[in-house]
Design a protein around this nucleic acid. Structure first.
Lengths: 234, 234
DNA sequence: TTTTTAAAAATTGTATACAGTTTTGCGCTC
DNA sequence: GAGCGCAAAACTGTATACAATTTTTAAAAA
């Protein structure tokens, strides 16, 4: 086989533009750089990323499927604003799925997996040390997704990923500052249980971790200040 | 307010073309009119539905998100072919989620809900009587989705809907004809338990119903006859 | 001043045109 | 006749152009 035929994988094997834009927007939402309710104009995004509206639309539709943005016909795309009900449902679903995923992960994790999880925790602490809360939040979510990947259950992992994405929006809307410390060592203990292959403990730790998160939200019935009059009177 | 201003809602208030095409394709896949592995050419579909490739692409991407079609870059869209592993995962996930959903439905179902479910069963039997197995299969899936709707848990219901869609493909690929009768009265008993508000029984019936379905699949490791040489040698 | 109405501007939905990749088909060489 | 190679055709990815809807703006009437 002629080695010259092999395409150079360096630089860019090809540019999946739509996916790049999807990733960029997803990250921005996860890091709370763009907030719930914000309008995502197609022309505006096309200018920003230097692509046509076609790929922007494709990306926005992809995000709509993940329920990260809300597309209203002839009106445009907005960063989703999960309701209180959505918030409860998302965390209930997480409390149903993730402990089971943690148990499976404990049964399947390799040494490399454990190292990767510890690296994640390290990065997360580093981000917190720099007061980069957006990045810390994103990494915290990625930690959970990584566990789902280790559990080797693609189907449920996809659901978990979707739930964690939405959790980021929920935290943006309903986090109460009073509960300052976000699970300092919860993730660390969880990794330890997984490394030990202790499925029961991993599931329990995951469950209590999620309950902690859930209870750190302010999900009381209330009409919190809308971002603008227009939002309220729409 | 001037009544002349009110738009006539008859005929077509507007045509959400992409959604129409998505629905049509989804139904065709659910009814096994188009089979796993089949190529879905954009120009071809555009001609069939009398729309531009733009809306066809939008529909195909929507189906890809539901994992009903598999889009390969620069090669096109194909009806998805769930692997044996996918099949196992989907039914495991259903066995995790749907009994819980059935229990919730039993707690919330109204008289109208029960009537709707019975109507569903009736339609399903009618389709079977006409030997319209495709339609019967679709309605059978819709029955499960209806229960999720009754349970009033949008988040989990969306997951269940996705799982049931994929189940249709799995049945197309792995159903074994030997197990002829597809749960003659399983659905009927389930409705009865829900109508009685008997959550425990509803959950149990749902679980055993799903186990029956699962065991009616031939999920042994095997390379079943591929639809074409190309599929096998790709 | 407030409300109503209409026209213009801006934005999204759809169709078409162009560019890049993959597949196909034919001719050539061995 | 089998295998290789290149060109053409087919198809997908992206950009642009046009159509339809919504929002804004401003003027006119109450």
């Amino acid at each position: 086989m002629d080695p010259a035929i092999i395409k150079t994988p360096s630089a860019r094997p090809a540019q999946p533009l739509a996916e790049d834009v999807t990733r960029a927007l997803t990250l921005a939402i996860h890091e709370h750089r763009i907030k719930p309710g914000m309008k995502l104009g197609e022309d505006e995004l096309a200018d920003i990323y230097g692509v046509s509206r076609t790929v922007v639309r494709s990306a926005l539709h992809a995000l709509a499927h993940l329920q990260l943005v809300d597309i209203q016909r002839n009106r445009g795309a907005f960063v989703a604003q999960p309701t209180l009900r959505d918030a409860r449902e998302v965390f209930e679903a997480r409390e149903l799925l993730e402990p089971r995923i943690a148990r499976m992960a404990a049964a399947k994790a390799t040494a490399e997996d454990i190292a990767l999880l510890q690296q994640h925790i390290h990065d997360e602490h580093a981000a917190l040390a720099e007061a980069d809360h957006g990045r810390a939040l994103h990494l915290s979510g990625q930690f959970h997704i990584e566990i789902a990947r280790i559990a080797d259950q693609q189907t449920i992992a996809a659901f978990v990923e979707s739930l964690i994405s939405r959790s980021s929006l929920i935290i943006a809307l309903y986090w109460r500052r009073e509960s300052a410390l976000c699970e300092k060592h919860a993730h660390h203990e969880l990794v330890q249980a997984i490394a030990d292959g202790n499925g029961d403990k991993a599931a329990d730790l995951m469950r209590s971790h999620l309950v902690d998160l859930h209870s750190a939200l302010d999900l009381r019935e209330q009409d919190e200040a809308p971002r603008s009059l227009k939002d309220a009177l729409l």
